[in-house]
Design a protein around this nucleic acid. Structure first.
Lengths: 129, 129
DNA sequence: CCTCACATACGAAACTCTTCGTTGACATCA
DNA sequence: TGATGTCAACGAAGAGTTTCGTATGTGAGG
């Protein structure tokens, strides 16, 4: 193993990652403008966060231009799975199945969504067999 | 509305809540002994955490005995759903369905678990109809 | 060359989280 | 009664998070 597990992103970091996933590689200005649609955070706040995230290895920075370009180091799905595994560990006794069932019962789903999930189940069952 | 939404429990708080859910109402000593099976935290650390959790409203304290007895204010499932809704909001664009599907694909499930989920889906579909 | 706009870097403040040492109250028992 | 053990309360330290003000560098235009 050459490098460590990435740390769990904090709330503010996750908001930034969301923008990077949506927009692709972005400058601080890009992220700041996107994030200021709702709520207000200063430009330097975003900059500082991105610097810290670079140190942590959550994003990679391209410094070849004057305005550095940041992009998420890990894909959206990979990060989401990481967060889910983490939550399963901390709050569901390590059982992802319990997590899924709780997520399903805790809300109202429409028929289309339920069908999509059911199809996914079929696919998974095919693979397992 | 008479009182506020409870705050999201932190990691250490969640570990304590896990013990309270498992054991029911417990003293600091109880929790401490349970939690020291794995890892090591001092007695006063647990005490302090429980005091803070009382202030936050995550637990309720019975002071009628010399050794105060704590219990979780919110049930395990309710808390789990809260955490899932929170994670869906922060990392899945508010879509619980995306969360479920990601949780399902991100792991290997055995046939029994998949069947349990399928049955739950049937139940839910019945209710929705 | 000087200034303006825009960018990064630095440092610090305010806050939360986690940890634990110390203190003082109180009960038990020798 | 005095020693011992158990308990809650308090305070504080150290780390991490989030915020932003200020300093500094640099390219473009006048």
């Amino acid at each position: 193993m050459t490098d460590r597990q990435p740390p769990r992103p904090t709330d503010a970091e996750l908001a930034i990652l969301g923008v990077l996933w949506e927009r692709g590689p972005s400058t601080v200005r890009d992220v700041h403008e996107q994030l200021n649609r709702d709520g207000s955070t200063g430009y330097t706040t975003i900059l500082k966060l991105l610097q810290i995230m670079t140190e942590k290895g959550l994003v990679v920075r391209d410094e070849s231009e004057r305005a550095h370009v940041y992009q998420s180091r890990y894909g959206e799905q990979k990060t989401q799975r990481q967060l889910l595994a983490d939550l399963a560990e901390r709050a569901f006794g390590g059982s992802a199945t319990k997590l899924v069932m709780q997520a399903l019962s805790g809300r109202k789903a429409n028929a289309a969504e339920l069908n999509a999930i059911r199809e996914l189940l079929d696919t998974l069952e095919g693979e397992t067999r």
